[in-house]
Design a protein around this nucleic acid. Structure first.
Lengths: 232, 232
DNA sequence: GTGTAAATTTCGAGT
DNA sequence: ACTCGAAGTTTACAC
């Protein structure tokens, strides 16, 4: 890992064309040759970058300034990517041996929400019981397949944030499931769209299609499950 | 901008819970208090981070090691975010004044593709002429509304990469447009799904719905338009 | 490897 | 301020 602070100008050409005027920035060159150009603001996204695999070549511009050329192998059907960094003045330059990182351990994403709802399906609708998780269909697995008190099949799609594409996804599943006589024996398969937060447009579309929306309280579910000991 | 190289352990709690075991990493602390934890690989995304606005407080752990606590104000309906960085050994520490960045200038995204196709609709289908760009509907604007040689209305959806959700979007527009007698006077509104690249599944879904797929050659369109002088 | 869905997405435009 | 759609998205996972 090499860290450089320099006044530089950056030009990118590849999937698009982009230009950064001369200014002072941080350049991070990772062991795999990837390069990140950061300013003193914004979020974690660099102003410009080059993803691995790529190679950095140090050269000189016409007027004798240092110029880095970072090139990546062209993906099929794409223009080859090039990042050109022209360095006007270097204020800092240091290299560090970091070693391999053990990596991130995560908890709390959709998968976990699915586990919790699989254990407590009745929080979605009274009388709901689980048939199986990841119920397979020809176009992909349904998050939860349940049965309600009347014996009707209920397909549940779970999202952290409920947006329009999640409703589309559930609609595709319902179209398919309702062609299966084994499931529709006692009546049409119902849909429940469950999310921690449901966007207004998604709600409108869901209700227009007869899909029930359920806003899920993640913390309350966690409480039901007493999973505090899973935390670090 | 402060750059630190240190052996550290990182714990995040907020929208999810995440943990990074003790290892050597680069810590970037930006002027707005945001923090990035980078390893010597991966893409531009940090292993862990805290987005602005947030504040860093330097303290000590129980055993006397340096500990940074980064806190962000809780977003509505969310758990407050906290990033705890326990520093075992610091190998590098430097601060730099970068100033404000003039920012990135871009070219070549979907908007530009839409401009080019608006100028040359006939490249999508022979005889096609533009009615208007961003044609408004109740559920959002159609990228291009055109008319074909026979006087039929044609709705065009433009994507850089054509995936299944783009076809869904166009389908929703067509459903709606086909209820408007002003548009369907001479026959049903047709759909064209235009993209630089169309995924096989998206193509199948589109054709199943009677939507025409058009693969767009961006460079060729650019050539028609003679826009080389727009480049840097 | 290809394809699909999620992300602590981030970013920008429009209302 | 909020909402929606795009991103040089990146990342993880299933087939």
């Amino acid at each position: 890992m090499r860290l450089v602070v320099a006044r530089c100008q950056v030009d990118y050409a590849g999937r698009l064309t982009a230009h950064l005027p001369m200014a002072t920035r941080v350049l991070m060159i990772k062991a795999d040759g990837s390069v990140l150009v950061h300013s003193d603001g914004g979020s974690y996204k660099p102003l410009n970058w080059m993803s691995p695999p790529c190679t950095v070549r140090e050269g000189q511009s016409d007027d004798g300034r240092v110029e880095w050329t970072v090139t990546a192998k062209a993906a099929k059907g794409q223009t080859p990517d090039t990042l050109r960094i022209l360095i006007d003045e270097m204020f800092h330059d240091s290299s560090h041996n970091l070693g391999i990182d053990p990596g991130l351990q995560k908890d709390g994403v959709e998968k976990h929400l699915q586990e919790l709802l699989a254990e407590h399906p009745a929080t979605l609708a009274a009388g709901l019981t689980l048939v199986r998780r990841e119920f397979p269909t020809a176009i992909g697995p349904v998050d939860l397949m349940c049965r309600d008190g009347a014996g009707l099949s209920v397909a549940v799609e779970i999202k952290r944030r409920g947006e329009i594409d999640g409703v589309e996804q559930l609609t595709r599943y319902l179209d398919l499931l309702n062609r299966d006589p084994l499931l529709t024996g006692k009546g049409a398969v119902r849909g429940i769209f469950a999310a921690q937060e449901i966007k207004p447009q998604a709600r409108v579309l869901a209700e227009d299609r007869g899909i029930t929306c359920a806003v899920v309280d993640y913390d309350a579910l966690r409480g039901l499950d007493n999973v505090e000991d899973r935390l670090f």
